[in-house]
């Protein structure tokens, strides 16, 4: 079932035969996936299919048990130096935002540039403010996360990830914890980022957004990649019956 990958030398993310187990339970089986620079990949699938696990393996929030993960030319192994390199190149946006509640929005943004990138406070502040403008909430810089709406918090989280000037952005169900009326403001920001050429790997159930933004769709089930196809083909002529059933369910209402 797993489609074989054409060898592409300029892939920024390359997974080959990746395995992940929780005890006896196989969370990921034989995952092969290449992502090109600037490509937008959207991963969908039923819950428990391993989408989040897959994306969390890419910056080693989960440690894979077998196979090979190469991000931006660096192989992910136990080496902490490699890990630091990869993490500074890969930004992540979480379902629950995970902003630091004891810091203002601005401090949330400038912490990593100052500590990891060794920027001065003023440099970091300049970057942070320009990013807050980009996600359209510069006026919230001095507030605490709890004073913001969910949509605003998630936009701050996106800005925080961007502050490190990552080459790749990972989104783990970024709109699933949001009230319905706030989903579009977050998706708009993400679509804008996509149009600017950011490499994005995104787990989401927002199929309208996927159709508009994705270059490549990946459908996962039971820890395996069932289907990987260009967006139009994926939605119009899905090959696997499992993909067809999933799409019918998710698009029928």
């Amino acid at each position: 079932m797993t489609p074989t990958q054409p060898a592409s030398p300029d892939a920024v993310v390359r997974l080959s035969d990746v395995q992940k187990f929780y005890g006896d339970y196989a969370a990921l089986r034989d995952i092969n996936l290449d992502v090109q620079a600037g490509e937008k990949v959207i991963i969908c699938g039923p819950s428990g299919s391993g989408k989040s696990t897959l994306i969390r393996c890419l910056n080693r929030l989960e440690v894979h048990d077998g196979g090979k993960i190469v991000v931006d030319g660096v192989e992910m192994d136990g080496d902490t130096k490699n890990l630091a390199t990869i993490r500074s190149e890969v930004g992540m946006v979480f379902q629950q935002f995970n902003l630091f509640p004891h810091m203002t929005v601005l401090d949330n943004l400038i912490l990593a540039p100052m500590r990891v990138r060794k920027c001065t406070r003023d440099e970091a502040k300049d970057i942070a403010m320009s990013l807050l403008e980009r996600v359209r909430i510069p006026e919230q810089a001095d507030k605490y996360p709890s004073q913001l709406s969910g949509g605003q918090q998630q936009r701050v989280a996106i800005a925080r990830a961007l502050c490190m000037k990552p080459r790749i952005l990972l989104f783990d169900e970024p709109t699933s914890a949001l009230d319905p009326e706030m989903i579009s403001e977050v998706l708009d920001v993400m679509a804008e980022l996509a149009s600017e050429g950011m490499t994005m790997i995104c787990v989401t159930h927002e199929m309208g957004f996927a159709r508009k933004v994705a270059d490549t769709m990946v459908f996962m089930d039971k820890g395996q990649i069932v289907e990987k196809a260009p967006t139009e083909q994926f939605f119009n002529t899905p090959q696997s019956p499992r993909t067809q059933i999933f799409l019918d369910q998710i698009l029928s209402h």
Binding site: N59, R60, R87, F94, F100, R115, M164
Partner: peptide, 22 residues
């Protein structure tokens, strides 16, 4: 919450910084 640790890790903060600031 685990999410706080994960966010700090994802940003590339060192173990000491994660402890000290987060």
């Amino acid at each position: 919450e685990d999410g706080q640790r994960e966010a700090a890790d994802a940003l590339g903060l060192s173990y000491g910084d994660k402890l000290r600031f987060i």
